[in-house]
Design a protein around this nucleic acid. Structure first.
Length: 721
RNA sequence: GGCGCGGUAGCUCAGCUGGUUAGAGCGCAUGAUUCAUAAUCAUGAGGUCGGGGGUUCAAGCCCCCCCCACGCUACCA
């Protein structure tokens, strides 16, 4: 693939519902920041957009819970995001908001275009409805019992206790509406669907070959294996139409001229990626540029940085939307990162098992680059990775302090000590040995070539989205500097050979000067500090300095001229002592414990009794028809983990009941067991078998099930009341 | 259960379309050195490449079966 004229880089819009933790940072922001910083230093035309994702049910719900308003919630987190990103040196070209009027217009325009082109399918479906509040219920607004962990307050889209993804139909009763606490009913509603099944064929070709309409748009071999794998997995399974609208209060209205649009909002998942477009528009307005150049010109490379949870949306659904619209380019790559674990466990907001970035900035002032270094070093580029405070400390002390900062310090100290802080004469014939092995003689010219090689290699890694590799290469370059000093021993040479010492330190300073740029995409604050120390011009954004440096080197010219005065040595990094690390680990455990309000692990765990459900009337109870019965047959339902197919004798008839108890009972031990059966429950098909009722069982605090039976003096079919 | 990404030295990971004695960083051991925040540099020990079968002159890389971790997905009335 030929290299593009310009780049449009996006980072997943953070959802304005809570603060950022290190997992967010590792996923879509630091990776993009390194990439974009490098592109800018190479003088490439690049715009990097991001913004707050501010719509959807979770925000209204949170507002209600905190007795606040959605607007107040999004304002609060938008503000916090901006501070956090700026604090960490994550340097977007624009950080926009999906609540802005420009974004609303842009999204509606998109929707309108797709509607007019007849891309949507209007379809009626049944949704949960709250009769008292007179509202349809988003998944998030349906509360019920989690089928996985029995948390009675799980939401219809997710259980916050065990973190599993749910759908409303999976929730166990009693279901209730988050608005009125009443039981929701099913009601018909109309929505607009994107017929992904219609696009399946071209999406498949596009993903697998990078080709659309005979044109090669990207090279799939450059895509990460797990991204391709995930997409192929979806394509194999067949794509289904997906609703692009919701019945919601908080979001972007479906354009009013569209029939039946009253009360309908555009689905946040459609609204959010269009946020990349509106952010670009706003940037263009601010900078007197043409946004279309970035979204509609074939020579632009669109790159989406996201976490793996977003793969399907950015690789299939959003491209389908863009293509359905017609005027837009498709992403050239979607370098999704995997997940970052923390101290051996998954990061969890609800369990408060997280390192919050804004808190890190408070706890470790002026140590942004230490976190950046550690996060890039352990970036989950191709598989899940882990952050531990111990490794954070080790990489700081052993690599940043001992290797990088120390090398820079050695060179500046020696220059100040022996040459009054002036870059000494480069003597091209002076005898020096190479930093590699210390065996062969070398010259300034050869060393400039070596520097060029390192700088090129680091850049290549970054362009391949191998940020860990680039970072490692950068550190090897610093090691090379240490080796060069070690082999040439300027501290010894000064006693006999001032000219030779000057030559050695001149090379040392050239390495430091190059290192200053090598470090910059990863550690921008450090790069600034080094420039101050070297007394060279500060860089604001990056305007091709790296490219210039490569040119200078390949001409055999030096980066720092002889006689240039450098500043006093400064320690770029400082050691982090054990106590500080221990305190962070303690903080993590404390906050998590507070959140869970559980005693220390070594204490015997008290039984957690489930809270009582809301009071019901006798009439409610009387609706239940519970009968005595006996299990006649029991067998596993093939291809399921939990299902047993039971035949129950109810005296007056025999019933087939499918029950999710296979993990608790051996089928052959169930034969002739007496059970209680909810006999008037509406039948339901599971795995193609109609289940005609439900057998009762009790569950203890450890999740163990026990059948609730009758005593043997009873026959079958009698009423329980 | 289906699908997907992985399982390589104590730890974190590289290993391209199969090709000589399987690599790096950290940690560990020994030695050198003192300009530097006891930092640096050199040397070394450490792996039957998750397990089992197969294809091949040759397999960490290909095929089959199994085990483990993670993710998506189905089922859980």
């Amino acid at each position: 693939m030929k290299s593009p004229k310009r780049y449009l880089v996006t980072s997943a819009l953070p959802y304005a519902n809570g603060p950022l933790h290190i997992g967010h940072l590792a996923g879509a922001y630091l990776s993009a920041d390194v990439y974009v910083r490098y592109l800018r230093l190479m003088g490439k035309e690049v715009v990097w957009v991001c913004g707050s994702d501010e719509h959807g049910a979770a925000i209204t719900l949170r507002a209600a819970k905190e007795n606040s308003t959605p607007q107040a919630i999004i304002d609060k987190y938008d503000q916090l995001f901006r501070q956090t990103f700026t604090g960490m040196g994550v340097d977007f070209d624009i950080f926009h908001r999906t609540s802005s009027p420009l974004h609303h217009e842009t999204t509606q325009e998109f929707f309108r275009t797709l509607f007019r082109k007849g891309e949507f399918v209007e379809q009626e479906s049944e949704q949960y409805f709250d009769e008292e509040a007179n509202k349809f219920l988003a998944d998030r607004y349906i509360v019920g019992t989690c089928p996985k962990c029995a948390n009675p307050d799980a939401y219809g889209d997710q259980c916050e206790k065990c973190g599993s993804t749910l759908s409303p139909t999976e929730l166990l009763p009693p279901l209730r509406s988050a608005y009125s606490k009443t039981t929701p009913v099913m009601k018909k509603t109309t929505h607009w669907y994107l017929p992904l099944n219609k696009y399946e064929a071209w999406l498949k070709t596009w993903i697998e070959t990078g080709t659309l309409d005979g044109k090669k748009l990207h090279d799939p071999t450059e895509w990460k294996a797990h991204v391709l794998g995930q997409c192929k997995s979806w394509l194999e399974g067949g794509l289904h139409p997906r609703a692009m609208t919701r019945d919601l209060d908080w979001g972007i209205d479906v354009p009013s001229e569209i029939p039946h649009s009253s009360g309908k909002k555009i689905y946040v998942w459609m609204d959010a990626p269009i946020g990349y477009v509106s952010a670009t528009k706003q940037w263009a307005i601010d900078h007197n540029q043409d946004w279309k150049k970035y979204w509609q010109d074939k020579d632009t490379a669109l790159i989406h940085f996201i976490g793996k949870d977003n793969i399907v949306f950015h690789c299939l659904i959003f491209p389908a939307i863009l293509a359905a619209h017609g005027d837009f380019i498709l992403p050239r790559n979607v370098p999704a990162n995997q997940f970052l674990n923390l101290e051996g466990r998954k990061i969890s907001t609800s369990k408060n098992w997280a390192v919050w970035v804004h808190e890190y900035l408070e706890d470790f002032p002026d140590k942004q680059d230490v976190l950046r270094y550690n996060m890039i070093k352990n970036m989950p580029e191709n598989q899940d990775a882990e952050f531990t405070w111990k490794r954070f400390q080790e990489s700081n002390n052993n690599e940043l302090v001992n290797n990088l900062a120390n090398f820079v310090n050695r060179v500046t100290v020696l220059t100040n000590k022996y040459f009054e802080g002036k870059v000494p004469e480069a003597n091209k014939i002076a005898a020096m040995v190479s930093g590699r092995g210390g065996q062969e003689a070398t010259t300034l010219e050869a060393e400039l070539k070596t520097i060029h090689t390192y700088m090129t290699a680091i850049g290549e890694k970054v362009m391949q989205y191998d940020f860990r590799g680039g970072l490692q290469m950068m550190m090897e370059f610093s090691t090379y500097g240490n080796q060069f000093l070690q082999f040439n021993e300027p501290w010894r040479k000064i006693k006999t050979d001032v000219v030779g010492t000057a030559a050695v330190l001149n090379v040392g300073l050239q390495i430091v000067a190059a290192l200053n740029l090598a470090v910059r995409p990863f550690l921008p604050f450090t790069s600034d500090a080094m420039r101050k120390m070297l007394k060279i011009n500060p860089i604001t954004r990056g305007e091709g300095e790296w490219a210039t440096l490569l040119k200078t080197l390949s001409k055999g010219k030096v980066l720092l001229e002889t006689g240039h005065m450098i500043g006093e040595p400064v320690h770029l990094f400082s050691r982090i002592p054990d106590e500080v690390i221990a305190a962070q680990v303690q903080k993590l455990e404390d906050s998590q414990r507070e959140t869970l309000a559980t005693p220390a692990p070594e204490m015997p765990k008290p039984i957690e009794y489930k809270p009582l459900n809301q009071t019901i009337t006798y009439e409610d109870f009387a609706k239940l028809d519970i009968r005595t019965g006996t299990i006649l047959e029991a067998e596993r339902v093939p291809k399921t983990d939990k299902l047993l197919k039971l035949t129950i004798d109810l005296g007056f008839e025999k019933r087939t009941i499918v029950s999710g108890i296979a993990e608790h009972f051996d089928p052959k031990n169930l034969i002739q067991q007496r059970v209680l059966v909810v006999a008037n429950l509406a039948p339901r098909k599971m795995k193609g078998i109609e289940s005609q009722g439900m057998i009762l069982s009790a569950e203890n605090d450890l999740g163990k099930l026990g059948l609730v039976g009758t005593t043997d003096i009873f026959g079958n079919g009698f009423i329980v009341k």
